[in-house]
């Protein structure tokens, strides 16, 4: 007896001719082995088709430049945060260059000098007082 073989999978996929389908149905009615094989193939096909569908990672669109309004970090204009940070850095460098050598000064004295410098320059740097532990007198 000739069994169904690959005709069985093709039938499940609707990829047989009418003649093939008729032959298959007639054979299935009298062949338990082919009925079992048909069930196995159907189960395997169902499992494959039930695999979860994954979304394409957004990073692919970003990398390919397909996402609008996404500018690589290096090309972004300075935001106010970036500008403020730059201003602060410039101020610190300038203050350090013009301030007297703090060697020998206490932390409190250094702090007071920076506060005074800030007032003179009208800088935007928020001054955080530095107080020696247990000091102040």
């Amino acid at each position: 007896m000739i069994h169904l073989g690959e005709l069985a999978s093709a039938y499940l996929d609707g990829e047989t001719t009418q003649q093939e389908a008729a032959k298959l149905v007639a054979h299935l009615g009298s062949c338990q082995a082919c009925q079992r094989e048909m069930e196995d193939l159907h189960a395997a096909r169902s499992l494959l088709r039930s695999l979860p569908v994954l979304e394409m990672p957004e990073s692919i669109r970003v990398d390919l430049g397909l996402v609008p309004n996404v500018v690589p970090l290096a090309r972004r204009p300075l935001t106010w945060v970036g500008a403020a940070t730059a201003a602060v850095m410039i101020f610190i460098v300038a203050a350090t260059a013009t301030a007297p050598d703090p060697v020998g000064l206490s932390l409190r004295e250094v702090s007071i000098q920076y506060e005074q410098q800030t007032l003179i320059d009208g800088g935007v740097l928020p001054v955080v007082g530095v107080v020696q532990a247990g000091g102040g007198q």
């Binding site: 073989g5 690959e6 069985a8 999978s9 093709a10 996929d13 990829e15 196995d40 193939l41 189960a43 395997a44 096909r45 499992l47 494959l48």
Partner: peptide, 16 residues
């Protein structure tokens, strides 16, 4: 193609 799909599914079923 028909043969590959059929044999692939049969192997899948055996593996599972």
């Amino acid at each position: 193609v028909r043969s590959r799909i059929h044999r692939g599914r049969k192997l899948m079923r055996e593996a599972l």
